[in-house]
Write a protein that binds this DNA or RNA. Structure first.
Lengths: 220, 220
DNA sequence: GAACGTTTTAAACGCTTGTTTAATTTCCGA
DNA sequence: TCGGAAATTAAACAAGCGTTTAAAACGTTC
């Protein structure tokens, strides 16, 4: 029954998903949700509790590759991306996560603290090894958020991407392999060169030009 | 009345938004929606038509800064970010756009063709000037999608970011100014150094290592 | 001021939703 | 075999939704 509820919640969202559809798919009576989970929200919370348990068994073991931070970064990107772009039976999990993101319920706080924050701090650690010494923490944080944003956009903006990129090139140039290599390369290029504008050689004049650009060009 | 419908649709979504709330907020009777727009969906479509008209007047004039592609990139990033992170009365527009993204209705296709695709191709053009000559088109496309993903994540993942970053540093290090500089710097570092893994000097060994890493580390 | 098309109003309709109820079936140990 | 707790069922309930209706109010024109 939980197996039937997950995909429906992911596809329809909490409100649009009806207990009748879930129970019809599971082959049980509609009263079962009240009998076993109290109400619809209880079923929803139970689905998330199950997801969280499954995520804890799915953590990437980065200790064995601690020697090469670049490889560690690549594997973390690929791990995140392959879960985001999963097309098989586990694809509804990430979709359900996305729904919680821009419509946070009470379930969301536990999700962030137990699953997202550890992954976030592990990425901070990896990138601190790849950045110049004494890189400020905000720079590393922004870099991690850039990385996560790039990965998640292929789920959130899937509708946009599908309409912008032809289907044939979609399969060849935007598969998990190409994308994880691309995002790793972008992040590496940014981290290893240092991101503070003033430190970036080719951006010296830009830092000066942008200050006067705000007032003149933004409000014509 | 359209002014009242926009924020409600953005905050609640199409299904959760009730015509009673919209009309109550606008101070009109619930029958007005049927009288003027046919039904609820007609009102929804009219809201989007108004957004599209407003967007066409809001295009960034890049012709005046065609001489400096780096500055053009920065302005385009800032333009997108400031619309995404808008907190004032126009904040509901981007939120409504995000809802259409992962729940596409019939309105979405017009939105992509009329607003998103031109902006996408303008970014492709700008980045082609900043990348090494003869950079393949898929590389440029992935780079643009990376850029857009980074920007949009601060709206979609706003709930995550708020829970991961302390509020005080949120205001100082993650404002529009800092973020647009950061994302511009990331994209520039990636574009100017070239992104094909084999061309990136420091990634030579990584390209070899990752092929054997898939089979051994991903499924332990 | 009367007549007429337009707009606004309050009330009700039909439908779907989550939830509950009471009756029925199933299961298992004494 | 039997009896009672547990589980399942069909039916009904109350509430909220979008939509419709018919009457009232409005404004314009002659």
């Amino acid at each position: 029954m939980l197996a039937a509820a997950g995909p429906v919640f992911a596809r329809r969202g909490f409100d649009r998903a009806t207990v009748r559809e879930i129970c019809g798919l599971a082959g049980v009576n509609v009263a079962a949700v009240a009998y076993y989970f109290g109400d619809k929200l209880g079923l929803y919370r139970e689905v998330f509790r199950q997801i969280r348990q499954r995520c804890q068994n799915d953590v990437l073991d980065t200790s064995v590759i601690a020697g090469d931070p670049r490889l560690a970064l690549y594997l973390q990107v690929r791990h995140l991306l392959s879960r985001v772009l999963a097309r098989d039976d586990s694809g509804w999990e990430s979709q359900l996560m996305m729904r919680e993101m821009n419509q946070p319920t009470a379930v969301f706080d536990e999700m962030v603290q137990e699953s997202i924050r550890p992954q976030f701090e592990r990425l901070i650690e990896t990138l601190s090894l790849l950045s110049p010494p004494a890189t400020p923490l905000p720079v590393l944080e922004r870099l991690v958020l850039s990385l996560v944003g790039q990965c998640l956009y292929y789920r959130i903006g899937a509708g946009v991407v599908k309409r912008l990129i032809p289907a044939d090139r979609m399969a060849s140039d935007f598969d998990i392999d190409s994308l994880s290599k691309h995002i790793t390369a972008v992040t590496l290029a940014a981290a290893e060169n240092g991101l503070v504008l003033e430190h970036h050689a080719s951006l010296g004049r830009l830092a000066d030009a942008l200050t006067q650009a705000h007032s003149s060009d933004l409000k014509p």
